[in-house]
Design a protein around this nucleic acid. Structure first.
Ligand SMILES: [Mn+2]
Ligand SMILES: [Mn+2]
Ligand SMILES: [Zn+2]
Ligand SMILES: [Zn+2]
Lengths: 132, 132
DNA sequence: ATAAAAATAGTAATCATTATCAAATAGGAA
DNA sequence: TTCCTATTTGATAATGATTACTATTTTTAT
């Protein structure tokens, strides 16, 4: 992945922000440094960088997608009122219960494990070998 | 919550389907019994019933919302290729690792705990007492 | 320098969901 | 039953985030 100036600045500003911005929030910030950048460019590069694993895309909650410059494994809590997303700090050995007590001041309502993967059907199709 | 015939049939058909249908998928099924029903009515009632806790709304995955007639606590795995969502059966005492091995035939790529709650700011606003 | 490939800016299109609103329906009170 | 009022519905318009498109610009390789 070649680092264009747009891509570099998008990444740089995303890493500065600790609040998991949406694409358009980040666009407003980046525009201060690159006044001619297009919103489509921000979307495009965020998508590409998340596919490349340089950043992380947070798309649970059915709302706007949010992006995270911190790629180390960590969990999030999101507010059902305003949609805000915050990190949940965990240490190895912490029980879910102890995590709940220290969820960045949130009143925790629910927790569930979200698994992602590839379903049996898609695995079969993939192995038929019409990929790349 | 009064049970109109539309609402009753939407709930009935949702409970029959075990594959977490989207609103429009369920609409097609319900239309066989109520040919004059509107898609908006399906959306409206799914929203209301999920607010009432009669059904569950699954909105993680960034795609179309899906609905679940089974309200007991359970986790889901979703396919990053086709978006399909399946139940993950867990028993008390199962480690996350053992769950992963039996995730309905899926190849598991990632798991994370998703917390939902109310953020400090929204809690403050709520306690100022301009609610209901 | 020239040509091919990749990326960008600007804008149009998409599509799931929500909002709107006139018409239909359902309960009650009289 | 009849009339009144509140709720719900069906149809359609509006919204809004994201993606697709395309002409132009920028980069890379020859
Ligand atoms: Mn984070
Ligand atoms: Mn389920
Ligand atoms: Zn909040
Ligand atoms: Zn699949």
């Amino acid at each position: 992945m070649r680092m264009t100036s747009q891509r570099e600045i998008i990444l740089e500003e995303l890493k500065k922000l600790k609040n998991h911005p949406t694409a358009d929030e980040l666009y407003l910030v980046v525009k201060k440094r690159l006044p001619r950048i297009s919103l489509a460019t921000v979307y495009r590069n965020l998508e590409q960088m998340s596919e490349a694993g340089i950043i992380k895309k947070l798309e649970y909650s059915g709302r706007q997608k949010r992006f995270d410059g911190a790629t180390h494994p960590h969990n999030h809590i999101h507010c059902i009122r305003c949609g805000r997303i915050a990190d949940v700090k965990t240490r190895p050995g912490n029980s879910v219960h102890s995590i709940i007590k220290d969820a960045a001041g949130f009143q925790v309502i629910d927790d569930q494990i979200e698994f992602t993967g590839i379903c049996p059907d898609c695995l079969t199709t993939e192995n038929m070998g019409n990929s790349h």
